[in-house]
Simulated assay, not measured.
Amino acid sequence: MARVGLTTERLTRAGAELADEVGFDQVTVSALARRFDVKVASLYSHVKNSQDLRTRIALLALEELADRAAEALAGRAGKDALTAFANVCRDYAREHPGRYAATRFRLDPQTAAASAGVRHAQMMRAILRGYDLTEPDQTHAVRLLGSVFHGYVDLELAGGFSHSAPDSEESWVRVLDALDSLLRDWPAR
């Protein structure tokens, strides 16, 4: 019998907290069972295995991030929207490093299609409408922005910019300025 009070949602949230504390790749059903001081078997009525737990954490993180981004983007366009979206990603990563890592967890296609990841893509494309990009350039730009945002944040979280001047905050602002400039003057093929 499952321990009273354990639910799939509670386990997912606890797993997300654990991810922020120890790293997303360290989250397992066993680690979660230790956190609740229960036997691993008592969790299997709520999560199938560690893969299922990580998928649930990824879906939770994508939803949280999409909600924050949607709120930040409301009423914004162009560079203002680009900066708001980028800052939400960066702030979320700083606040929740394990959950942020979970947002990049590879989901199966069916799960991904039903996830908040779709909302992220829609918001990114909405930002790009302010730059008057059409396909296939819009897809290229989405990939560029995702690469820059995630790459910068990953390097920053790993301490990659902490030992040199200028400050990483100054570089972040300059990177966003450069992206805005590039998007306004997207190179012709």
Rank of each mutant, 00 (worst) to 15 (best):
E71T: 14
R34T: 00
V29P: 10
A77E: 12
V40G: 03
A86I: 06
R10H: 12
D154N: 11
Y92G: 07
L11A: 06
Q122V: 11
F149H: 03
L145T: 07
I127E: 01
R76W: 03
H150A: 14
D132I: 02
I127V: 09
T7M: 04
V118K: 05
R35G: 00
G117K: 09
R143K: 11
E21C: 02
G151M: 02
Y44M: 05
T83L: 13
R3L: 12
S168Y: 13
E63V: 05
Q138V: 04
F161N: 07
Y100I: 06
V88D: 02
L73H: 06
V22F: 00
D91K: 14
R35P: 00
A74K: 14
G151I: 05
D25C: 11
A70Y: 04
V173E: 06
A81Y: 02
G117S: 09
H163A: 14
R35C: 00
G146K: 04
L53G: 08
L73R: 07
V27Y: 06
R119G: 10
L176S: 11
V153M: 10
P109H: 01
K48P: 01
Q122R: 13
L128C: 03
P187S: 03
R76M: 04
Q138N: 09
R34D: 05
L145S: 00
K48W: 01
K79M: 12
A16E: 08
V22W: 01
L59R: 07
N49D: 15
D167Q: 10
D132Y: 00
R125Y: 00
A72D: 03
T111L: 08
T139M: 06
L53V: 07
L18S: 05
V27D: 09
W172Y: 09
A165Q: 15
V173Q: 13
G160K: 02
V38M: 04
S164F: 10
R13Q: 15
R189T: 10
L155C: 06
A66L: 10
R3V: 11
A81G: 01
T134R: 14
S171Q: 14
R104H: 10
A2M: 09
D132R: 10
L62G: 07
E63N: 11
F149D: 07
L43Q: 00
V22L: 06
H46F: 13
L155D: 05
M123C: 04
A31G: 14
L157I: 04
A102N: 06
W186G: 08
L145V: 13
R56G: 02
H140N: 11
G130Y: 10
D108M: 00
A14I: 06
V148P: 01
T103I: 10
V22D: 03
E71Y: 08
G160A: 01
A178R: 15
G159A: 05
C89M: 14
V173K: 13
A158M: 14
Y152M: 05
E63M: 00
D137R: 15
A74M: 12
T7W: 07
A126M: 12
A70V: 11
A178Q: 13
L59I: 01
L43I: 02
L65M: 14
E64G: 02
Q138L: 08
G117W: 04
R174K: 14
E21D: 13
A77I: 06
Q122I: 09
S50P: 02
L60G: 01
P109W: 00
